[in-house]
Structure formats: C-alpha cells, structure tokens
C-alpha cells in the first residue's frame, strides 16, 4: 500500500492540477486576508469558499483521476499486489496530495500576513474542516467511479452528490424546519446537521466566529452541545463515518469487481 500511495502522491503533487489548486487557495486566502482588515470577517469568507469548493474539487478530481489512471491500475492488478493496497493507496495518495495543496495554499498567506499567531484557533478549524471535506468527498467520488464503468454516468452521479449535499440538502432542511415550525426542533436540527458533512463543518466553524451571537437560542443549543466532550466526539465521529463508510464500500466493491 505504501508504494502505491507514494507513487500516486508523487505523481499528483507534480501535476498541473495540484499547482492550480494550491495557487487558487493561496491567492484567495491572501487577497481576502489582505483586503479585509478584520480577521474575523476574512475567516468567515474563507469558510464560505472552503465548504463549497473543497468538496467540489475533491469530487471532480477523484472521479477524473480514477478514470484516467484506469490503464495503470489494470497494469498493477496484473502484479502480485493486494487489491486493497492498490485502491487504498491510490485514494490516500489522491486525498493527501489535494489536502497538502490546500493546506499550503492556506497556511502561507496566514503566516506571511501575520495572522498565524493571532488567529491560530480559526486557522486550525479551517484547515481541519477543509482536509476532512477533501477526504470525505474524494472517498465518495471514488466509490461512485468504481461502481460505474461509464465515465459520463460516473461524473454525473458524483457531481449530483456534491450538488445534493452542498445545496439541495439545505433546501430540504429548510422546508422541514418551516413545515414543522410549531414543534420543538432543537434535536431535529442537530441531527440533520450531523447527517451532512458540509452543514456540520459550516456550523462548527460558525460557532467559533463572532456571528454565532446572531444565532440566538438555536445557536445556544448548538454551542451547548458542541461545547461538551460528547458533542465534539459525536461531531468528529460523524465525520469519520463519512470517510469510513465510502472507503469500506469502495474497497469491498474493488475486491469483487471484475476488471
């Protein structure tokens, strides 16, 4: 597994895509931090970008990489290497290289513009969120790609999954909240937030920021829940499940698939 991981990682880290991804975050984070004097606002804007873009790039990149490296994969499969190590290695290499580009793109502006010390808590939260989302969505995309031979279908489903979790899910969420406005909704909101990694990241980040005061009573419920050890454990447990379930699924699929 280590060897496939290393090859994928080095292959990707030298690719144009990773440089572009790094460049994008470097420029955006730099511009936002530089132009808005208020670090809190800058972090809020960065949050908006990260929770939409990291999943999208993770999804697109993983699907693309899977379909493009198919021949190389078939070559590997002919060797006496376990399937598990080929696919897991490839996935980790892919998600790892994307995360590295993202982290570097974020950390350099923070250090250069002198926000690293003062905003370390927020920076940590942003980077953890970004990395988790990258891992989650590349796992989901990998799983989808492995299930579908036809790359158009694979791409379509992967993008739809992203669209669903990033946009449509919130619409349904809002509809439920409005339909059941007469009932106490604290637990339901908490549950629905946990079920979507993008919403979960958004809420966790917002609770760290000033704007959490706008969330009033609901915000207080969330703050109380995530303020406890149990709450944080459940939140990270949910994120871990979002990585584990797709990874296990694609490994199982890969083990049985007839290439």
């Amino acid at each position: 597994m280590n060897r496939t991981l290393k090859y994928t990682f080095y292959d990707l880290i030298r690719s144009w895509w990773c440089y572009a991804y790094f460049g994008f975050y470097f420029l955006t984070a730099g511009a936002i931090l530089y132009l808005s004097g208020d670090a809190n606002r800058a972090v809020a804007s960065l949050m908006n970008i990260i929770i939409i873009l990291s999943p999208l790039v993770g999804t697109l990149f993983a699907t693309m990489y899977y379909y493009n490296s198919r021949e190389f994969m078939e070559l590997l499969l002919a060797q006496p290497v376990r399937r598990r190590s080929i696919f897991l290695g490839q996935y980790l290499g892919l998600a790892g290289s994307l995360s590295l580009s993202f982290l570097l793109g974020l950390i350099i502006p923070f250090i250069v513009l002198g926000f690293f010390g003062s905003e370390f808590g927020n920076f940590l939260m942003l980077s953890i969120t970004g990395v988790l989302l990258t891992f989650i969505f590349s796992a989901i995309a990998y799983w989808i790609a492995i299930r579908h031979e036809n790359r158009i279908v694979g791409f379509g489903i992967a993008i739809f999954t992203w669209l669903f979790l990033a946009v449509i899910y919130d619409g349904i969420f809002l509809l439920i909240l409005i339909l059941f406005e007469d009932y106490p909704l604290d637990k339901l909101t908490l549950g629905l937030t946990m079920l979507n990694p993008i919403d979960l990241s958004r809420i966790l980040l917002m609770l760290k920021l000033d704007i959490s005061a706008l969330m009033g009573y609901t915000g207080a419920v969330f703050q109380k829940f995530f303020g406890t050890n149990a709450g944080i454990t459940i939140a990270f447990g949910a994120s871990a499940l979002w990585i584990l379930i797709p990874v296990m699924s694609f490994l199982r699929k890969a083990a049985r698939k007839d290439f």
């Binding site: 908006n48 969420f173 809002l174 919403d199 969330m215």
Partner: peptide, 21 residues
C-alpha cells in the same frame, strides 16, 4: 423572513442555498 418565521432556520445562515433563494 424565514428566520423570523422559524427561528431554528438560522442554522442555515451562510449556506449556499440561502444565497440562491
């Protein structure tokens, strides 16, 4: 308006969907 109707919907603040609507 939605927040004033159902206070819990504030959890969707800064969501992409909210920008769209």
């Amino acid at each position: 308006y939605l927040v004033s109707r159902s206070e819990s919907s504030i959890v969707l603040m800064r969501s992409f969907f909210v920008d769209i609507i």
